[in-house]
């Protein structure tokens, strides 16, 4: 990656010093421009994070008075099977969701050609990303549904009894991830398609003259040029995996018997659902989820910072 010229050198200190007011303005102006953003960020991100952490030390049903219990919520988490189920599922989500990147790349390479009507094919492949997650969830839960689902009927034809993916605690998470991958692959594909537009044709030409082709061409010539696209694809996929809430909620409500819960859904269940109203406990789960996200986010920020400095 090249360094953009935006990070220009400090202005050469020549000529007359600027009048005081202008200097003050120059110092103040960036802060003024930043102010709306900073304010929003404070109100809607930073303060709520702090508040969540604060609430996680209380026992509170949202109705009566808060009751300070220190780290008891966290101690309870350590002894909570449902929490470990959610944590495990979150890990499965993280790992399997990454499949969206190679699949997306593959489809992008496949579609990156000039054939008649290629735009139609591209938009067809992009289609699942455009529809809402709720619709994706519904489509897949009907697809899997015992009794009338296409997938169920297919497995019934094969093995006689049929496999109800969403009723089996061992398969349910994979079933939901498969539904999530569908739009996520489309997303990664579009990222790579735009990336492929930026691949320098002269380098391809040069590589071809040197006799590179197939996998080697892809690995040594194309992929390095796609690094920015890959980076973004990893970021959105990791975040998508960690906040996987809507599909779980639509397809299973965390079931059967809580085996498809993920942290974000468990947090919602404990704090906000009909059977919950344990604000403190929900907040404690949120804090754990935040800590996990922080690992990735700080990794990304560190990498971006390094790139910006051109290391």
């Amino acid at each position: 990656m090249t360094v953009s010229p935006a990070m220009s050198e400090p202005r050469a200190e020549t000529g007359m010093p600027a009048p005081r007011r202008r200097r003050l303005n120059r110092k103040l102006a960036p802060w003024l421009f930043l102010a709306p953003g900073v304010l929003m960020f404070l109100i809607y991100v930073l303060i709520p994070i702090g508040e969540s952490m604060w609430i996680s030390f209380f026992q509170w049903d949202g109705l009566s008075a808060k009751h300070w219990i220190g780290i008891e919520n966290y101690l309870e988490l350590l002894d909570d099977d449902a929490f470990y189920t959610s944590l495990k599922n979150n890990l499965i989500w993280l790992v399997l969701y990454m499949l969206a990147i190679p699949f997306g790349l593959f489809i992008a390479l496949f579609l990156n050609q000039t054939v008649r009507g290629i735009r139609i094919y591209k938009s067809l492949f992009f289609f699942p990303f455009v529809i809402s997650q709720v619709v994706v969830g519904l489509i897949f839960s009907w697809f899997y549904a015992p009794g009338f689902g296409l997938f169920f009927e297919l497995t019934k034809w094969l093995d006689g009894t049929g496999i109800a993916i969403l009723a089996n605690p061992n398969t349910v998470t994979y079933g939901i991830i498969a539904a999530g991958l569908w739009p996520q692959i489309a997303y990664c594909m579009i990222l790579y398609l735009t990336g492929l537009n930026a691949v320098a044709p002269d380098q391809i030409e040069a590589a071809r003259l040197d006799g590179a082709k197939g996998i080697k061409m892809l690995w040594y010539v194309v992929l390095p040029q796609l690094r920015p696209a890959t980076f973004i694809a990893v970021v959105v996929t990791v975040i998508g995996a960690l906040r996987s809430f809507d599909l779980v909620s639509i397809m299973t409500d965390g079931g059967p018997f809580g085996s498809s819960r993920v942290l974000s859904y468990y947090m919602y269940e404990q704090a906000l659902s009909e059977y919950g109203y344990r604000m403190g406990y929900g907040a404690a789960i949120a804090v754990v989820l935040f800590a996990i996200m922080m690992i990735f986010i700080s990794g990304f920020i560190w990498k971006m910072w390094r790139d910006e400095r051109g290391l």
């Binding site: 839960s141 899997y144 549904a145 015992p146 009794g147 009894t161 109800a164 993916i165 969403l166 009723a167 299973t252 079931g255 059967p256 018997f257």
Partner: peptide
């Protein structure tokens, strides 16, 4: 009925 955990109560009505 098998696999009831994946069935909505309205869908079971159709059974």
């Amino acid at each position: 009925t098998k696999n009831v955990a994946a069935i909505d109560w309205q869908d079971a009505v159709s059974n």
